[in-house]
Computed example of a mutant assay.
Amino acid sequence: MTIKRMENVGVVVEDLEAAVAFFVELGMELEGETTVDGQWAARISGFDEIRLDVAMVRTPDGHSRLELMRFHTPAAVGAAPNAPANTLGIRRILFSVDDIDEVLGRLRAHGAELVGGLEQIENSYRFCYVRGPEGIIVALAQELG
């Protein structure tokens, strides 16, 4: 048996409101928000107790989702917020965009900064990494031609 699809990628953040605003500005749609607690959630996660706020955002085509989570109990465990792109673990999320310059302009208003440079890869793509809220690296790719 094979998998049917990937449902979402979970991202733990301290400032849920800022993370939602960033990804909505990128072009994702807020699907919903809720608070999760209870023994079933604690057992799944391996904790004695759990309470967190969750916001689900999806791409406009409805195929990809990010589950943005802010933990209250237990408290989130810190990590290096400006870890480089070669750090072990999930390091970046890639989005295809229509106009990379326009998207960068909008995201800068939410504190996004280029990690390196905006590069053109031959005649096929313009590509960059930006660091968003909580140090999340978001890759942007604009197909050319």
Rank of each mutant, 00 (worst) to 15 (best):
L26V: 00
L26T: 02
G27I: 02
E29H: 12
E29R: 13
E29G: 10
E29D: 14
L30T: 03
E33L: 08
V36R: 02
V36T: 06
G38L: 02
G38E: 04
G38S: 03
G38M: 02
Q39V: 04
W40V: 00
A41Q: 00
A42I: 05
A42W: 04
R43N: 10
R43C: 02
I44Q: 08
I44S: 12
S45E: 10
D48F: 05
D48A: 11
D48P: 08
R51Q: 14
R51K: 15
L52D: 00
M56P: 03
V57T: 02
T59R: 01
T59D: 04
T59P: 01
P60E: 00
P60M: 01
P60F: 03
D61L: 03
D61E: 08
G62F: 01
G62I: 06
H63T: 12
R65G: 02
L66K: 03
L66V: 01
E67L: 06
M69H: 10
M69A: 11
F71K: 08
F71Y: 15
H72R: 14
H72K: 13
P74D: 07
A76Q: 11
G78M: 03
A80D: 15
P81F: 14
P81E: 06
P84K: 02
P84R: 04
T87Q: 10
T87P: 00
L88N: 11
G89N: 01
G89P: 07
R92Q: 13
L94H: 05
S96Q: 14
D99H: 13
I100N: 07
D101I: 07
V103H: 05
V103G: 01
V103W: 07
L104Q: 05
L104G: 11
L104T: 10
L104E: 04
G105L: 05
R106T: 09
R106W: 07
R108G: 06
R108D: 08
H110M: 11
H110V: 07
E113M: 14
E113W: 13
E113Q: 15
L114M: 09
L114S: 06
V115Q: 00
G117W: 13
L118F: 08
L118W: 04
I121E: 06
I121K: 14
E122Y: 15
N123F: 10
N123A: 15
N123Y: 11
S124I: 15
S124G: 01
R126H: 09
F127C: 08
F127M: 11
G132Y: 03
